[in-house]
Design a protein around this nucleic acid. Structure first.
Length: 958
RNA sequence: GCCGGGUUGGCGGAAUGGCAGACGCUGAUGUCUCAAACACAUCUGUCCGAAAGGACGUGCGGGUUCGAAUCCCGCACCCGGCACCA
C-alpha cells in the first residue's frame, strides 16, 4: 500500500466500489457487447433487415431525433440532451413490448459544414467525414441504443441519389387543385393535347414550340425555375429562402444584410399545399406553440378578390374586408406590380395635387424614381421607416365598382408584391396604414363603420382609423347593393354574394405562405439532376443517371462579396468546372446524344432532412427510396394517427417552421404520388429545452474561461479580477463549453445520462451545473452498493422475503416510474428511483433479490450500462434490454395507513394515521374527537365539515 | 404592436384544487481517518423562540372556494415567435 497515493489506498479498501474507473470498464464492455450482439437491431417485416420474427410481431415504435450537423467543434453536453431522452424512452418502449426503431444519421450538407471546411482549408467531404467519425465516437460513449445498420449521412451518394430522385418526382408533378392532389406532368400534357384543359391564350398544344411548352409546364410544375425577386445575400454569396431571413432583413446564418434581387432560381410550389399543410396540423400531436407558429407562417385569410376597372381593363385586389368596399377612396399597387407601366400616362391629369407627384414632371419619372428609391432600401431601412408612409400617384384613376367613384391609383412600398395580388383597395377609415397614407397625401376618408367609441363620424377629427367587428356598417348604399345597418359578418356575406353575382369579384382564401426558394449558389449540396439543352429548356436526368455526384472543383468556396454591396451577382462554384457542366448525354428520350449544360446551383441544406425518416426504414434499398411494405409497417396510418408518421420526434424548437414545414410538404407530395402511405412525417413532436450555461465576462465584456472562475460571497472572480455572470448558450466562443467526454471521464456515461435527465422537465431550458452531477453519481454508487459488496465484488442480495414497507416502496416506485417514463417525465422518474434506492440504503440488512431485480429493471432505461452489469451479476444470461419492465401490484401501491390531515379553517391542526379504506363518516368522527382539533376549535360550534377520505378533513367553525 | 410560454428556498426543480418545497446540489455538524479526500449519518424556506411551539411564505394586487402555487380578473417583469400580410 502506498502512503502517498490515497486514491490507490481507497481502491484497496473498496476495490469493487462503483468509481469512474469501474464505470468506464463496465461501459466499454457493454458497448462492445451491444455492437457485437446487435442488441438494438430492429427487424423489418422483409428485406435485408428482416430478423427476429417474435420481435417483428410486436407493435412498432419509431422514435427519432433531429439528426445532427457534424460540426468540427465536436459535442458539448447540451447536444446529446435530446438523444439521451429518446434513448431512455426507446429503451422503455423495448421493455414494454415494442419493436423499436431508433437510430441516428448525419445531416452533413449545407453551410456550416462548408464554412468549417473553408476555414480549415480541407475539402468539405474530408472534414465532414472526419467530423462524423469524431461525433460517432463521442456518441458511442453515451450508450445510445441505436440500430447502427440504419445510419447514414445525407452526403452519401447512395442517400442523395434518392434526394435527387424525389426532386425529379416533384419536378415531374403538378398540383391538381380540383382533385387536391399532385399528379404526374404527363397527365397534364395529355389534358392539353386532348383539349380537356385550355391553354392560356386559347392556343393548341400542337402549335406550341418546345420552349413555349416548357414555359407552360413551368407554370404548373411543383418544382420550377423562375425569375423572381429573391433574397440575395452577398456576404454569404448565396440566395436564401424567406424562412432563412430574419425579421430585420438579415441572414439567419452569419447575420449579413439581405437584398431583393431578381434572379433565375429554383422554387418549390409549397403554396399549392397551403390548405392541406394547415388542415392536417389538427390531427398531429405537436406542441400547440409550434402548430401556432406554422399556422401563422401559412397565414390563411378569408376575404374576397375585387376587380377595379381602369382604362377598359382591371386591377384585382385582395381584401379581408370586402364589407368596407364603399370606404375605398384610393388604390395602392406594390412598386414592382407588373401593371404599373401599363396604366401610367404620359402626363399628369389636370389639377393633380402637388403632394401626389413627388415633385416630378411626369408620372413615368415619378414612378421610376420611387421604384429606384424603394429597391435601394434594405429591409432594415424599410422597417425603420415603416411609420412614414411614402408613395407616389401613377397619374391614373380606377373606378370603385360598388359606387362608380373615381379613385386615384398610387404605388407605395407598404403594399407588398408577394402577398395577395400585390394591390389593395385603401379604406383609410378602417385601416391604420391606409389612414396614415391618406393623411400624408390628403386623400378623402369615408366613414363606413359607425364608431362605437364615441369619436363620431366626422373623420377630419380622427386621430387613427377605427376598426371593430361589433360595429354597424353605414354610408354603404349603392344602386344595386346596400350594406347599411348590417354587422360586419352579414355585410361580408352580402357583398361577397353581390360581387359573385355581378362577376366583379369572388370570395377567396389567401395565404401568406410563399413558394420555397430551393437553389443555393454553394458547392456543398446535392447537385440538381437537371440539364439544359441549347434552347435553355430544362430536362430531367433519367433515373439511371442518378446519383449525379458532386464533381471535384478547384475552388469549392462560395464567391462572397462585400456584405453591403447589393449590386453583385451570385456565382456558383460548380460553374467553375466546365468539363462537368458541358456534357453530351443521351437522356433516353428518343432525341439521342446531345450537348447539354448542367444546372450548377445546388439544393439547400434542408433537402436532405426533408425525407430522412423514410430512409432509416430501408437504408440499403438500391431500387426504391423505401419498400412500400416496410414503409407501411413503420410509418403507415393507424388508430389515433390518421396521417401515420414517426411515433416520436424530438428536437429543438428552432425548426418550427423551416425543416418541419418542408418535411411535411415533401411527405404530402410523396403520398400523393403513391410512394408512401403516410401523409405526415412526424405524428408526435417534442421540443427539448436548451442546456444553458453561465457566461462570465470581465470588465471589458470579454468572456473568460468559466471553469476557472471562483465564487466568493456571491461575487465571481477570474484570476483575482471580479467578473459578471449571465446565463447564456453553451459554446466554445463563450468559453463555457463542457464536453460529455469530460463528464464521462470523471463519472461515467450513466451518471451523465442520469444528470441530464434529472435536471428538470425535458421541454424547459435550464443551466448546466457541473458541481451537481455528483448527485447522480452517488445514486449509482448506492445502487451498486445495495447489490454488490465493495470489498469482494460478490453479490449481496439475499433470497429473503422483503418486508411490507419495502414491498410498498418498490411497487409505488414501479407504478410512478412507469407513468413518468411513458409521459417522458424523466426527472421525476429518477426522483422515484432515488427514493426507492434510499429506502433500501437506509433499511438495515441485505437487499432481497425480489427487490433488487425489479430495481435494476427500473434503472435500465436510464442507466443501461450499470443495469446490464448488475443484471449479469444477479445471475442472468444476456442483456437486460429486452426484459419486461416491472409491473406494479396495485395491492402494494397504496399505503397500509395514510396520513390524514385535519384542517380547521384550512389550517392544518392535526395528522391522523388511518386506513386508506376508511369511510367518510368514520373519518369525520375520528377527526372531531382528536384532542388537537378539539383544542383548535376551542369550543366553537361547527358550521361545516368537508371530508375527502382518506386524505383530508376540513372543519369550518361558526 | 400582435401571438405564445413563463415567474415556487441560496441553486436546479416537485406538487395542476386538498400536508408547499419530493429528488438533487450547496451549506453546517458529526462518524470513519494521524490527517485529508471519498463514503456515510443528521440538519438545512424566512422570522420569533433555549426548546416545545407559533407566525409568515409560491412575482404584485384583487376575486372564486370550506380550501388556491394550481381556477378567474387586472398589473409588473423575463423568455420565445411574428410583424406595413391588406
Amino acid at each position: 500500500m502506498s502512503e502517498t497515493n490515497p486514491a490507490a489506498a481507497a481502491e484497496v479498501a473498496a476495490p469493487h466500489r462503483y468509481t469512474a474507473a469501474l464505470a468506464a470498464d463496465i461501459e466499454a464492455r457493454w458497448q462492445d457487447f451491444w455492437d457485437a450482439d446487435g442488441t438494438y437491431a430492429a427487424p423489418n417485416p422483409k428485406g435485408d433487415l428482416a430478423g427476429d420474427p417474435e420481435l417483428a410481431a410486436k407493435p412498432k415504435k419509431f422514435i427519432m431525433d433531429m439528426f445532427p450537423y457534424p460540426s468540427g467543434a465536436g459535442l458539448h453536453v447540451g447536444h446529446p440532451l435530446g438523444y439521451i431522452a429518446t434513448d431512455v424512452f426507446a429503451r422503455f418502449q423495448r421493455m414494454t413490448g415494442h419493436n423499436v426503431l431508433h437510430t441516428l444519421g448525419f445531416d452533413a450538407f449545407g453551410l456550416p459544414a462548408e464554412q468549417y471546411a473553408v476555414q480549415t482549408g480541407t475539402h468539405p467531404r474530408v472534414s465532414t467525414e472526419a467530423n462524423i467519425e469524431n461525433m460517432k465516437i463521442q456518441l458511442r460513449r453515451l450508450g445510445l441504443g441505436h440500430d447502427k445498420r440504419r445510419s447514414f449521412a445525407t452526403i452519401d451518394p447512395d442517400y442523395y441519389k434518392w434526394t435527387q430522385w424525389i426532386f425529379l418526382q416533384i419536378f415531374n408533378s403538378w398540383y391538381d387543385d380540383e382533385a387536391r392532389t399532385a399528379r404526374p406532368v404527363s397527365e397534364l400534357v395529355a389534358q392539353f393535347e386532348s383539349g380537356e384543359r385550355a391553354l392560356p391564350g386559347g392556343r393548341s398544344w400542337n402549335e406550341l414550340s418546345a420552349a413555349e411548352r416548357a414555359d407552360v409546364l413551368g407554370e404548373y410544375r411543383l418544382a420550377y425555375a423562375s425569375d423572381a425577386p429573391v433574397n440575395w445575400c452577398p456576404g454569404l454569396g448565396t440566395v436564401l429562402a424567406n424562412e432563412e431571413v430574419t425579421a430585420d432583413g438579415r441572414s439567419e446564418r452569419g447575420n449579413f444584410p439581405v437584398f431583393k434581387a431578381k434572379l433565375r432560381q429554383w422554387n418549390m410550389r409549397i403554396t399549392a399545399y397551403a390548405d392541406r399543410l394547415l388542415d392536417d396540423l389538427d390531427a398531429l400531436d405537436w406542441p400547440e406553440a409550434i402548430k401556432l407558429q406554422q399556422r401563422n407562417w401559412i397565414g390563411r385569410s378569408e376575404g374576397a378578390r375585387v376587380d377595379f376597372p381602369i382604362d377598359g381593363e382591371r386591377i384585382t385586389v385582395f381584401t379581408t374586408r370586402p364589407d368596407t368596399l364603399f370606404g375605398a377612396t384610393y388604390m395602392v399597387l406594390a412598386p414592382e406590380h407588373p401593371l404599373v407601366e401599363k396604366f401610367t400616362p404620359a402626363a399628369w391629369p389636370e389639377g393633380t395635387h402637388d403632394v401626389w407627384t413627388g415633385g416630378h414632371a411626369t408620372p413615368a419619372q415619378a414612378v421610376t424614381a420611387y421604384r429606384a428609391q424603394a429597391a435601394s432600401k434594405s429591409d432594415v431601412e424599410r422597417q425603420a421607416e415603416a411609420k412614414d408612409k411614402t408613395g407616389v400617384f401613377i397619374g391614373a384613376y380606377a373606378t370603385n365598382p360598388v359606387n362608380g367613384e373615381r379613385i386615384p391609383v398610387f404605388i407605395a412600398d407598404y403594399v407588398l408584391m408577394g402577398y395577395g395580388t400585390g394591390a389593395i383597395m385603401a379604406v383609410p377609415a378602417g385601416d391604420q396604414r391606409d389612414f396614415e397614407f391618406a393623411r400624408a397625401f390628403e386623400l378623402p376618408i369615408h366613414c363606413i363603420v359607425e364608431p362605437t367609441d364615441g369619436r363620431g363620424t366626422d373623420t377630419s377629427t380622427w386621430e387613427d382609423a377605427f376598426s371593430s367587428y361589433d360595429a354597424k356598417i353605414i354610408n354603404s348604399s349603392g344602386e344595386s347593393v346596400s350594406l347599411d345597418g348590417l354587422g360586419v359578418a352579414e355585410a361580408k356575406t352580402r357583398i361577397t354574394e353581390w360581387l359573385e353575382r355581378t362577376g366583379i369579384g369572388e370570395g377567396t382564401v389567401n395565404f401568406r405562405l410563399r413558394d420555397w426558394l430551393f437553389s443555393r449558389q454553394r458547392y456543398w449540396g446535392e447537385p440538381f439532376p437537371i440539364v439544359y439543352d441549347e434552347e435553355g429548356i430544362a430536362h430531367a436526368l433519367p433515373e439511371s443517371m442518378l446519383p449525379l455526384e458532386l464533381p471535384e472543383v478547384e475552388d469549392y468556396s462560395p464567391r462572397t462579396f462585400d456584405p453591403d454591396d447589393a449590386d453583385t451577382q451570385p456565382e456558383t462554384p460548380l460553374s467553375r468546372n466546365e468539363e462537368w457542366v458541358d456534357v453530351t448525354l443521351d437522356l433516353g428520350d428518343g432525341r439521342g446524344p446531345r450537348r447539354y449544360r448542367r444546372e450548377t446551383n445546388t439544393m439547400p441544406n434542408w433537402a436532405g432532412s426533408c425525407w430522412y425518416e423514410l430512409r432509416y426504414l430501408d437504408p440499403h434499398n438500391g431500387r426504391q427510396l423505401v419498400d412500400p411494405e416496410i414503409e407501411r409497417y413503420w410509418m403507415g396510418p393507424r388508430e389515433g394517427q390518421p396521417h401515420g408518421g414517426v411515433d416520436l420526434y424530438v428536437g429543438g424548437a428552432e425548426h418550427a417552421v423551416l425543416h418541419l414545414l418542408y418535411a411535411r410538404f415533401w411527405s404530402k407530395v410523396l403520398y400523393d404520388l403513391g410512394h408512401v402511405s403516410s401523409v405526415e412525417p412526424f405524428h408526435k413532436l417534442f421540443n427539448q429545452g436548451m442546456i444553458q450555461a453561465y457566461v462570465y465576462r470581465d470588465s471589458r465584456g470579454i468572456a473568460v474561461a468559466a471553469a476557472e472562475v471562483e465564487e466568493r460571497d456571491g461575487a465571481y472572480y477570474y484570476q483575482g479580477e471580479k467578473v459578471s455572470r449571465l446565463l447564456g448558450k453553451m459554446g466554445k466562443s463563450l468559453k463555457n463549453a463542457v464536453t460529455p467526454d469530460e463528464i464521462c471521464a470523471e463519472y461515467g456515461a450513466d451518471t451523465l445520462r442520469l444528470y441530464e435527465m434529472a435536471m428538470g422537465p425535458l421541454d424547459v431550458s435550464r443551466p448546466w451545473d457541473t458541481r451537481a452531477v455528483v448527485g447522480q453519481f452517488r445514486l449509482l454508487q448506492r445502487l451498486w452498493r445495495n447489490v454488490v459488496d465493495e470489498a469482494t465484488g460478490d453479490v449481496t442480495v439475499v433470497d429473503a422475503e422483503p418486508d411490507e414497507d419495502t414491498l410498498r416502496a418498490l411497487h409505488k416506485a414501479i407504478d410512478g416510474v412507469r407513468g413518468d417514463l411513458e409521459g417522458m417525465r424523466f426527472n421525476t422518474a429518477i426522483a422515484k428511483v432515488t427514493e426507492l434506492n434510499n429506502h433500501l440504503t437506509k433499511a438495515s440488512g441485505a437487499v432481497p433479490r425480489s427487490i433488487a431485480e425489479p430495481l435494476v429493471l427500473l434503472v435500465a432505461p436510464l442507466a443501461p450500462h450499470i443495469a446490464e452489469e448488475l443484471w449479469r451479476k444477479l445471475g442472468h444470461e444476456g442483456s437486460v434490454v429486452h426484459q419486461d419492465f416491472p409491473v406494479a401490484d396495485p395491492a402494494y401501491v397504496v399505503d397500509e395507513t395514510v396520513t390524514c390531515v385535519v384542517q380547521v379553517k384550512g389550517k392544518v391542526k392535526a395528522r391522523l394515521e388511518v386506513s386508506p379504506a376508511i369511510s367518510g363518516e368514520e373519518l369525520e368522527k375520528v377527526a372531531l374527537t382528536d384532542e388537537k382539533v378539539v383544542a383548535a376549535l376551542d369550543g366553537a360550534g361547527i358550521r361545516k365539515v368537508i371530508v375527502r377520505a382518506p386524505k383530508l378533513v376540513n372543519i369550518v367553525p361558526v
